[in-house]
Design a protein around this nucleic acid. Structure first.
Length: 269
DNA sequence: ACTAATGTTGTAGG
DNA sequence: GCCTACAACATTAG
């Protein structure tokens, strides 16, 4: 569900719901999503005030006046805000954690439970291993970091240690826009090709954020609203469809255990 | 019944 | 250590 544009959209939508508010009570319902001692998590969260809501790659960082709430949406995680005033939005069917405020409640809903919802008294090391954010990385940084990785470009793009935030959808869309074959070896990419990839990376992510992300199956923001960038996908989920550039059918292969979509004519090996 | 799904982690082998 | 492939995690939808 969530790559950088979706996570950014969630952060932007949930921030005004909770910033400056105090958690009155907390419920933790899953031992998989929230690890450690649930009683400690609940007692730590109770009475804490939300100061800021931020993001690094796909990681959501909710800073409290005492510690940090770390949220990763995994594949199917959602943060849903329920206003006590009424206007019910989206009813999650798999709540894994709930924060109650005076004027509403924030639900962490996640059917597959691949996500995380964890409290840390101190800044965790989780963040250290994630590379710079893909939305703001400078060309020089992008190019330098690329040379430190080897293997297939698609695999490297999915590696969060390289850049934070790119997932399966945006990796495929970026490679199509840049006309790079997903199996291309990173070491063989020309300087011009790398520059082109950097331009398209920022362009695609910014556009996707403007469209509030891609709603492929059930992704929604904290108000239950879907994104619309899926309407602009050129290759992702379009196997067999004609390429928008040349008309050749889009092909689907598996790379790094992920479905990978590309145009065999526009993206030569 | 079978397959694939927006993600990450651990294991084994090269 | 880095890379690849594979399995695993748990659930839903086509």
């Amino acid at each position: 569900m969530p790559e950088l544009p979706e996570v950014e959209t969630v952060v932007r939508s949930v921030a005004p719901d909770i910033i400056g508010k105090t958690i009155r009570s907390a419920e933790v319902l899953s031992h998989r999503v929230t690890r450690g001692d649930h009683a400690v998590t609940v007692s730590s969260l109770c009475g804490a005030k939300i100061e800021t809501v931020g993001r690094r790659g796909k990681q959501i960082l909710i800073h409290l006046d005492r510690g940090l709430l770390y949220v990763h949406l995994g594949m199917t995680g959602k943060l849903l805000w329920f206003s006590a005033a009424g206007e019910k939005t989206f009813s999650g069917k798999h709540p894994r954690a709930i924060l109650h405020f005076d004027d509403g409640a924030l639900y962490y809903d996640d059917p597959r439970m691949f996500g995380r919802f964890e409290y840390y008294a101190e800044m965790p090391q989780l963040l250290a291993s994630v590379g710079p954010d893909a939305l703001t990385v400078a060309l020089a940084d992008f190019a330098t970091r690329l040379t430190r990785h080897r293997g297939r470009i698609k695999s490297v793009l999915l590696n969060q240690k390289f850049l934070g935030g790119i997932g399966n959808i945006y990796a495929d869309e970026l490679l199509f826009a840049s006309r790079v074959h997903p199996l291309a070896q990173v070491s063989r990419l020309s300087k011009a090709r790398v520059e082109r990839m950097h331009v398209h990376l920022l362009e695609i992510l910014e556009t996707a954020v403007r469209h509030k992300g891609s709603s492929i199956s059930d992704y929604v923001d904290s108000g239950g609203n879907k994104g619309s960038f899926q309407q602009h996908h050129q290759v992702y989920g379009r196997a067999g469809d004609p390429c928008s550039r040349c008309g050749t059918p889009i092909r689907r292969i598996v790379v790094a255990q992920r479905g990978t979509h590309y145009c065999p004519r526009c993206q030569r090996a």
